[in-house]
């Protein structure tokens, strides 16, 4: 047998030619997206600065919105946004938790896939459809509930309604319409699927060994959920809730359709009159001169910063809650 010719030493540099072109194209795409995104952010900030210079710190404390007389601020709209999002989250979280637990723990395996699809479909339903439903259907049906809450829970400051005597049977019910509460309910329906799908993912990652261990120790199903599924899914629950909060803060059309805008801080959630930053932008963009437009930009930037903080917090909590077992090998 003849000895094989000496093997040539191979070159170990990054493959050239085709691959270099490929890498350059990818980098270009990344750079293009980066430029676009930075452009959006920088443009918004640079346009907002003009209004912030005029208003100064009173931008955060003024309730009125009269940019033409240089008297404007986001105290009322930002409070309104947070109230609507708060109502939405406090309705959405129990609903989403129940649905996520049902899908991951209770539902028969046959319908699980269908349920997941339905929740995802719910997330894809356009916001204008929810707004329409809230405006034309929910508003009329929820007045009774609002009236009941304000009658028996008025000692809770948020549920107080001024200008209506609940014991007067002939009192007009318009005071309960177009409120933060109704807008919050509609937004809750929009963010529930978002929260639910993250919670479900977190719940289904609870390890099977611990689940079976709990059962073997004699736990009931709820005992197993309480001691295994919820502790494992806690990060996902918090993170999903905050992501939902981020969506709720930025919601425009449904809120715009339902509320009747007021420019005072309106803490009575059941009462007619509410406001939000995004509804303000949708309402006022058309009639705006340069200062007013800059003021709207400033309001938009404030909202953006708020959702940004919420989203990043959510992202880091979700990321920390994952064990990393399913990430890349």
């Amino acid at each position: 047998m003849t000895s094989a010719p000496l093997e040539q030493r191979r070159r170990l540099r990054p493959s050239g030619g085709q691959d270099r072109v490929f890498r350059i194209i990818l980098r270009c795409a990344g750079a293009a997206v980066l430029v676009l995104m930075v452009l959006v952010g920088a443009f918004l900030f640079s346009k907002a600065i003009g209004a912030l210079r005029i208003a100064g710190w009173s931008f955060l404390t003024t309730e009125e919105w009269e940019p033409d007389s240089h008297h404007f601020g986001i105290a009322a709209v930002l409070t309104g946004t947070i109230l609507i999002a708060g109502v939405a989250i406090s309705i959405a979280v129990p609903l989403a938790t129940g649905m996520a637990l049902y899908v991951s723990e209770y539902a028969p395996a046959r319908v699980r896939r269908l349920l997941i699809n339905m929740v995802d479909l719910m997330a894809a339903v356009p916001s204008v459809v929810y707004g329409l439903w809230g405006f034309a259907f929910l508003q009329g049906n929820v007045i009774g509930l609002a009236r009941w809450l304000s009658t028996y829970f008025a000692w809770f400051p948020l549920f107080k309604v001024t200008g209506s005597d609940p014991r007067d049977p002939l009192a007009t019910e318009t005071v309960y319409t177009s409120s933060t509460f109704i807008a919050g309910m509609v937004v809750a329906l929009m963010v529930t699927p978002v929260i639910c799908s993250i919670m479900r993912e977190a719940f289904s990652q609870a390890p099977i060994g611990e689940r079976e261990g709990a059962y073997a120790l004699g736990a009931t199903r709820w005992g197993m959920i309480r001691s295994v599924v919820i502790p494992f899914g806690r990060g996902g629950m918090i993170g999903g809730t905050m992501l939902g909060l981020g969506r709720a803060l930025g919601e425009t059309i449904a809120v715009y359709l339902i509320i009747s805008p007021v420019f005072v801080i309106q803490p009575h959630v059941l009462q007619n009159g509410a406001n939000s930053v995004s509804a303000l932008i949708a309402l006022r963009y058309g009639e705006s001169g340069p200062v007013a437009l800059s003021a709207l930009m400033a309001a938009g930037v404030a909202l953006f910063v708020l959702t940004l903080i919420v989203n990043f917090a959510a992202g880091s909590i979700v990321a920390r809650s994952r064990s990393g077992a399913e990430s890349e090998a």
């Binding site: 980066l34 959006v40 932008i281 949708a282 709207l296 938009g300 953006f304 959702t307 989203n311 990043f312």
Partner: peptide
């Protein structure tokens, strides 16, 4: 780039509209 893209997912849609408008 990933951080910036993740930040921009938080951009409220109305603000995206306002950006193009302005």
């Amino acid at each position: 780039v990933r951080t910036v893209v993740e930040a921009m997912t938080a951009l409220p849609s109305i603000v995206a509209g306002l950006f193009i408008y302005a």
